[in-house]
Amino acid sequence: MYRHENQIKASRTADEVQSSSAQIVASIDDLLKEILLRLPIKSLIRFKLVSKQWHYLISNPRFYSKGIRIAHSCNGLLLCSSFQARDNNQTYYVYNPTTNKFPILPKLDVGDGISPRIHGMSLAFDPAKSFHYKVVCVQGLRLDMVGYQYECEVYSSKTGSWRKCGEPLTAHVNFEDGVYWNGAIHWNNNGTGRDSLYFNIGNQMLRIMPIPPIDWDCINNYYFGESFDHLHYIKIVGLELHFDVYEMRRDYSEWFIKYNVDLHLLLVLILR
């Protein structure tokens, strides 16, 4: 008789587990966070030196938050969730401070087994165009030690339901802190030199975009955001008072330098 076996989906083989449990633990950000959260602050600060990925995880303010968290915000709407790093099935709701309403989003079908798991949730809302909003959810399926296969799902407040979108894409990206601009959500990868991606809500395509042409090694801080319909990237190096403001071209061909800002002049004015 044919006996059907239930197999918990896992993309790694036994050999991989044998040889690189360490690498796998280190590559699962959620798992790593669970360990790092339990370290004393002094150890945590020292471990920023382990690698750029660790530096990013530890420096991210979201790392320290507990309870309810704001997952994302866009033009006055807030996307909130119950915060539990390892919960695949948390509740998301969209809070509108002007109406004081917070409709709960329908639960996503996150499948069985370990993955897929939600890697990021972003709001897309432009009150100038429509009072309806969309929520883009990125789910990731672990492929191997470092790679994920990502798929987007879009919630529309108009239809009140989720819909799977576009083709899956393999990449190594952090899908927190998406920025809405030009009808798309953009994810930049702070200093890790990983891919930067954007998801166009109109044509439902997930695409790679250029990363800013800067030296990733010396970045301690950065700003990535939209302002007056332009997408900007600002790098802040150490305690230097000079920084460049980059802007992305609307066709995604390149980042160009928009301003060179030198705060030494300001310093001179203050000290005078």
């Binding site: 690498q23 798992l31 790092l36 339990r38 004393p40 020292r46 382990v50 690698s51 990925q53 090694d217």
Partner: peptide, 28 residues
């Protein structure tokens, strides 16, 4: 388990952590 791992890690050198997690130092 995460708590136990953190307890073991807390007084270790950065080099120890890199070795245990098989992480390449990617800083200059």
């Amino acid at each position: 388990v995460a708590k136990k791992m953190a307890d073991i890690m807390k007084n270790k050198l950065v080099e120890w952590v890199r070795r245990e997690f098989d992480i390449q130092n990617d800083y200059t």
